[in-house]
Amino acid sequence: MSNDADISRRDFVRGRLLRTVRAMAGVPTPPPAPQRAAWVPLPIRRPPGAVPEARFLAECTRCNACIQACPVGAITVAPMRFRHAAGTPMIDQATAACVMCPDTPCISACEPGVLRKDRPLKMGTAWVDRSNCLAHRGTLCTTCSERCPVPGALRVDGGKPAIQDATCTGCGVCAQVCPAPINAIAILPLPDRPA
């Protein structure tokens, strides 16, 4: 039943600034920020239990076993824009979320062992943009906390969601279910991916 694509948070932040400038000051739209010439490595979100990024890139055989094992189809093949990481498994926050299966079938399926049960399951950290979060703006909403699969990772404090950074695995379920007009949750990647 879905139709329209979401407006990404980043586009929105940029858009809002332009709009604010226009609306409040009546001045012309400022020119867009200059494009960066040099290529900057894109942050990549790996499936849970991934070994350090350098080792992951070196040892992942691109066999797609984890992709096939995922019961919700959250793991995809990194596209070309990820350059040297293209072809490796990733979870694209814009379209999917890891549901934190208790039996971690993706890890069980990983033969080269770049996804490991003895590694932290952390894939990133959720971050609530309070300016877009309905609960923070006076509308009753508790969807993200109810659907968070990690106990204790997303608390509701005075009716408003608060992420517990240490517990949050960055699975992305909260961002997927956020019903705010402009999605209020971003999943921040781990600082070491790319290394």
Binding site: M1, S2, N3, D4, D6, P179, A180, P181
Partner: peptide, 9 residues
């Protein structure tokens, strides 16, 4: 149910 955000939530 035809509003994607509500349907996902």
């Amino acid at each position: 149910r035809r509003v994607p955000q509500l349907h996902r939530a």
